[in-house]
């Protein structure tokens, strides 16, 4: 079985002739992510779109796990899939009345979008393949895999977020944080993002709050409905 698979998809072939699980899972998740993303585009029903999107994002999380970014993967699951999509589905359901669940797009637009998207894809893929260092470098790097296998990502990320870098040079002992040579941490962006999130929460709650003023004040009603026309 393994040899035939290897002939079909050499990326799955392992040195000893068995199945390369890493390649297998990568192919699995990549295909899932891409196909489901395409399904998002093709689907007409909004809820189904959201469903496909969730699965696509989940598959991407799998890709992250494969790339050794476990924390980011878990974060992707937690926030993107768990949080963002629940929000999105909320929105879908709150606004889902029959006529609006699917709104047809003219075929002309679709064709045009396909052309433009194809061009963009071509450009991006050309760029992706243009860097020789970007393909198969794990083969040249040697010890990278062994290191990566046990390299925890949560603590270094956490430390980086509070402003201390313990990865890279520090972990390998070449430099110490006292030298001042290590790359800087992300305390400030972290704080900014946290404040940003707070502001966004408040702002979103303000924007989305129900407009009860319609009944109480005639002036406000004019502004909120007629003003937009």
């Amino acid at each position: 079985m393994s040899s035939s698979v290897a002939q079909l998809l050499p990326v799955l072939a392992a040195a000893e002739g068995g199945l390369n699980w890493h390649g297998f899972f990568f192919l699995l998740f990549a295909l899932l992510a891409c196909c489901l993303a395409v399904a998002v585009v093709l689907a007409d029903n909004v809820v189904r779109m959201a469903f496909y999107l969730v699965l696509s994002l989940g598959a991407t999380a799998g890709l992250f796990f494969l790339a050794g970014a476990e924390f980011v993967g878990a974060m992707q699951l937690m926030i993107y899939v768990g949080g963002t999509l629940v929000l999105l589905i909320f929105g879908v359901m709150l606004t889902a009345q029959e006529p609006f669940v699917s709104i047809k797009t003219p075929v002309r637009d679709k064709v045009l979008a396909g052309l433009v998207g194809g061009a963009l894809l071509a450009v991006l893929i050309q760029a992706a393949l243009s860097g020789p260092a970007w393909s198969g470098s794990a083969a040249e790097g040697g010890g990278g895999v062994a290191l990566a296998a046990g390299q925890p990502s949560a603590t270094p990320l956490g430390m980086a977020l509070v402003g201390i870098r313990v990865d890279g040079d520090v972990a390998s002992g070449e430099k110490s944080p006292e030298d001042g040579q290590v790359r800087s941490g992300y305390l400030l962006p972290f704080e900014i993002v946290s404040v940003h999130l707070l502001v966004v929460l408040v702002g979103a709650a303000y924007l989305a709050r129900s407009k009860r003023r319609k009944s109480s004040g005639g002036q406000g009603a004019d502004l909120s409905t007629g003003g937009m026309r």
């Binding site: 637009d109 045009l112 979008a113 433009v116 998207g117 061009a119 963009l120 450009v123 760029a127 243009s130 860097g131 020789p132 260092a133 970007w134």
Partner: peptide, 29 residues
């Protein structure tokens, strides 16, 4: 949607122009 399209077309165009005018690849080795 049209605006998005403009953005994409513009991006692709800039990318192509840059690629043609400067002979380096985007990602230098």
């Amino acid at each position: 949607r049209q605006y998005v399209m403009f953005i994409v077309v513009g991006t692709v165009a800039i990318f192509l122009l840059v690629s043609m005018m400067f002979s380096t690849t985007v990602a230098s080795p």
